[in-house]
Computed example of a mutant assay.
Amino acid sequence: MVSSTKRFKQHHHAVCTELDGEVALFQSNTCDYLVLNETGSAIWNALKTQPTLPELCKHLQGEYEVSPDECKLSVEAWLEAGLEKKVIAVVDD
């Protein structure tokens, strides 16, 4: 489970580019290639500020009509998948 107090960032081995308004990621160590949808792209771009889960949810709720609970569950799942694929990382304290 993703902690509410940890900060998240784009992994330094993840290379990104924008294709038709969506972010495409390539993880150079694992050779994984991902194309993010609009919401995933918004999360990816928000990671530049190294936000916590609550900060990410607050940002997304300002952009999209989504309930706090639904947002938290969806963002947690996205972060867990991103950590597993090594396209995002936890910021070291």
Rank of each mutant, 00 (worst) to 15 (best):
A24N: 01
P68R: 05
E55W: 04
V66D: 05
L34S: 08
S41T: 15
L25T: 01
I43S: 00
E22P: 00
K48E: 15
S67I: 01
A46G: 01
D20C: 08
A46K: 10
L47S: 00
V75R: 00
H59S: 07
E70I: 08
L19D: 13
Q27A: 14
N45C: 10
D32R: 12
L36T: 04
W44I: 01
N29M: 11
A24H: 09
N37Y: 01
C31I: 03
H59I: 06
H59N: 06
S28W: 08
N37S: 07
L34W: 07
E65C: 01
S41Q: 04
E55T: 05
E63A: 07
Q50F: 04
C16S: 15
W44M: 02
E65H: 05
D20V: 06
G40N: 11
L36I: 13
A42S: 14
P51K: 06
E38A: 13
G21E: 08
E38Q: 12
G21Q: 06
E76A: 09
P68D: 05
G62P: 03
E76S: 12
S41K: 02
A77S: 13
N29E: 14
E63T: 05
W44L: 07
P54G: 06
Y64V: 11
K48M: 10
A42R: 12
L25Y: 03
S67C: 05
S41P: 01
K58E: 14
A42D: 14
C16M: 10
V75D: 02
E22A: 13
E63D: 03
E55D: 10
S74H: 12
I43L: 07
P68M: 06
L36Y: 04
L53M: 11
Q50W: 03
W44D: 02
V23D: 00
E38H: 11
C31Y: 12
V35F: 03
Q27V: 11
C31T: 10
L25H: 01
A46T: 09
L36P: 01
T49K: 13
E22Y: 09
V35D: 02
L56R: 00
T30L: 15
G21M: 03
S74W: 11
E63W: 01
G21V: 10
Y64K: 14
P68Y: 06
E38I: 06
Q61D: 02
L36V: 11
D69M: 09
D20S: 13
T39D: 02
T39S: 06
V75L: 05
C16V: 02
C57M: 07
